[in-house]
Simulated assay, not measured.
Amino acid sequence: MSIEITQLAKRFGQTNVLRGIDLKVEKGELVALLGPSGSGKTTLLKIIAGLEWPDAGGLHVDGIDWLQLAAKDRRIGFVFQHYALFPHMKVRDNLAFGLTVGPRAARPGKDVIRAKVDELLQFLQIPHLADRFPTQLSGGQKQRVALGRALAITPNVLLLDEPFGALDAAIRRDLRRWLRDVHEATGSTTIFVTHDQEEAFELADRVVVMGDGQIEQIGTADQIHDHPASPFVARFMGATVELPVHLQAGRPTADGLDLTALTRRPLPDGAATLFARPQDITPQPDPAGAWRVTRRSSTGAQLRLLLTHPTLGEVEADLPRRDAPEGLVPGAPSRLRIAAGTIFATTAHHRSATASAAQPIPRKESHL
């Protein structure tokens, strides 16, 4: 099912949690909401689920106004970070729960439910866990059961809120590959929330980067990594080095920086700021260089340097140790070569954070 969100706004007290969100999710698409804590990701997910109500804006799924539907009528599959399994029920009964609590007239028969649960156990690759209780499962196994319970009702939309956040790194990697396979097998329209960039980019068809209640950028991993749309996205994507440059005919220049690898930018002449990642900075020994190596450390594979400039401050550089130029020892004068980076005009005005002025939406009394 396709989802269309228009100018969605939400306030808690004096805090604008969502500031006019516009987003369209295509049928069968897997979209990640990526951003730091407090960016509005989970609130947006809960509004889609019917667990929160917006102050303004629209939410339509396949053309149907979901803000006129109670949560129970939206047929949502929701997977939480902490599983939310029923501890007194075996895995088999947890999977069957959603099928047993619907309206009696629409409730499947016992044989149909049993067959559906058996199918899910095989699909989730956990038939051997059918008669265990949640306390007898590992974290990864619990999350598979939680996803299976959400899939049991054949949801219109599948929503996942930090589904792997409580698991260790190795299990997260295995489960997100498995989740991608599940998504492709079911063809469901899926939205998941995460603050983990690697997770978002590996799993999602498109990534929605959110910050301070706004959508900062929508795109693929390569688009967002190589062409961040704002200083916020650049910093969030790891461009932690910020240096002043001057633009002339789209070309950046700066004292002590070799910027010849950067392409021409369609920006006005004048002051600008270069955002770069430590991995894209290579110090070059230069007797006339104004940068000085002040700290050097090695992980074996990577050489990590801290360099200081008398007026520009400190910069970190991270480069393969075997490829590092000779002579980068503490105190060595250097020039910095920037292999890649993003430039924003210093006078650029970031878009307003003003929330939508749309008319408030009347709250549906029985939406929970």
Rank of each mutant, 00 (worst) to 15 (best):
W53D: 02
S352L: 01
D255K: 10
I21E: 07
R206Q: 13
F86Y: 14
A96C: 09
G256D: 05
L336M: 11
A261F: 05
H225N: 14
I215L: 03
A169R: 13
G341N: 05
E4R: 12
E198Y: 04
A271P: 05
T253H: 12
R177C: 13
P36D: 10
L121W: 00
V241R: 09
S2V: 10
L69D: 10
D269I: 11
V209C: 00
A254K: 10
D280I: 00
G35M: 02
P36E: 13
F275D: 04
L158P: 06
R104H: 04
G63Q: 07
R173K: 12
L158A: 07
G50P: 00
R75N: 15
E162A: 12
P360G: 07
R351L: 08
A288K: 11
T346E: 15
F192A: 03
A9M: 07
G250A: 11
P287V: 12
L305S: 09
G139H: 08
L67F: 00
A170S: 15
I3M: 10
P127E: 04
G300K: 04
L336C: 10
D269W: 08
A290M: 12
H349L: 14
L305Q: 04
V208I: 08
F80D: 02
F12Y: 14
Q248M: 06
F97W: 05
